[in-house]
């Protein structure tokens, strides 16, 4: 049984939930009935009073973010490819400054979730709220402007351009300079170019890549390309950073460094991070909340400790243990 279902069972089973107790409901109904009699109307004796309970709330966010608008909230999110339900009834909340993990066996639908969040695919069902704003009907570029940035599982850099230009393209919507100012080199152009240059180098400094600013992006080593993708994503000024297997192809030392950097990014920029990763050291090391996906469905949510102890998760990854 999943954690969600457990909670639900407990809530709908019998006992008092949240602040509302059965007693309160009863007291309220008695009072209402009394009022009805007083006004000369008779309350229908056979109508049963509905029992009200708080709906099962299966969201988890860090305590420090509990009272802030969550940066991401997915409600009953789903997408079908033909008859295949690639993602089904995904409920997810990511707190304002949370580092969250999305894990699951191969083909579980993790990258599909990222593609839904960034509107590469339009969801078949459900709602995505980004910082409280419904993203229905937006396209990929618009969602980026609203504050979701991402990296890709198979690196997608602007290969023929320099490292600095890659970051400047990330800054596209942060600094303005129209076509005419650009062509005729108006003062606006020189101001904006200076800002582009300074901010690009500042961002590259986060990963100590300022020395590579003039290198061609496609010629960088694999690990550096992954880091550059993160820098480019950060340049868009996101509220939520989606990292698709950031540690893929990295050695343990590089992974360790990456973990420090992800935490540093969260602390410095005060943004939320949602990452897909197969490297369990990284996931268990830095993720605060973890969601486990299998066959497009959430099978568990919780802290790293809870997830590690969860029999369903173990079964999804290792098969049934006898």
């Amino acid at each position: 049984m999943t954690r969600d279902e457990k909670t639900y069972k407990v809530q709908s089973g019998s006992a008092p939930v949240g602040g509302r107790t059965e007693g309160t409901y009863k007291a309220q109904s008695e009072r209402a009935a009394a009022a009805g009699v007083e006004q000369g109307r008779e309350t229908h004796p056979k109508r049963q009073r509905t029992k009200m309970v708080a709906p099962p709330n299966n969201y988890l966010v860090p305590e420090r973010d509990a009272l802030k608008t969550p940066v991401l909230e997915c409600r009953h999110l789903g997408i079908d490819f033909g008859g295949l339900k690639a993602v089904e009834d995904l409920n997810l909340m990511v707190g304002k400054t949370e580092i969250a993990g999305l894990i699951g066996p191969n083909g579980a639908g993790k990258t599909t979730v990222f593609n839904l969040l960034t509107k590469v695919y339009q969801p078949t069902r459900g709602t995505i709220l980004l910082d409280g704003v419904d993203t229905a009907g937006m396209d990929t570029a618009r969602v980026s402007r609203e504050g979701i940035a991402r990296t890709f599982q198979n690196i997608r850099l602007f290969d023929s351009l320099t490292v600095e230009d890659n970051v400047k393209i990330g800054l596209h919507n942060q600094v303005d300079c129209g076509m005419w100012s650009g062509i005729f080199r108006m003062p606006r152009y020189w101001l904006s170019e200076k800002e582009f240059h300074d901010r690009a180098l500042e961002l590259l400094d986060v990963f100590n890549m300022a020395d590579n600013a003039n290198d061609i992006a496609g010629s960088l080593p694999y690990g550096a390309q992954r880091r550059l993708e993160i820098v480019r994503a950060l340049a868009t000024g996101p509220k939520l950073l989606l990292l698709d297997e950031p540690a893929a192809g990295m050695n343990p030392v590089e992974t360790e460094e990456l973990m420090d950097n992800i935490v540093k990014i969260r602390d410095d920029f005060q943004i939320a991070v949602l990452l897909i990763e197969h490297d369990m050291d990284l996931v268990m090391g830095i993720c605060e909340g973890i969601v486990v996906l299998n066959f497009g469905k959430v099978i568990a949510k919780g802290t790293p400790e809870e997830i590690q102890a969860n029999p369903q998760v173990v079964e999804a990854y290792l098969g049934k243990q006898d």
Binding site: T118, V120, D139, T140, A141, R142, S144, R145, A149, R150, F152, R156, L157, F158, D159, S160, L161, D165, K168, I169, G170, H172, N173, V175, D176, C177, G178, M179, S181, G182, I183, F184, R185, Y189, S192, E193, F196, R232, A233, A235, T236
Partner: peptide, 29 residues
């Protein structure tokens, strides 16, 4: 040449190099 070496030019080349990535950083391709 001025267009190419400006914000708009970089966006044009970004779309050429990788359309999906360009969209993902908020460029109206």
């Amino acid at each position: 040449t001025n267009l190419v070496n400006s914000r708009s030019g970089r966006a044009i080349m970004a779309v050429r190099d990788n359309r999906i990535a360009a969209e993902s950083v908020g460029i109206d391709t």
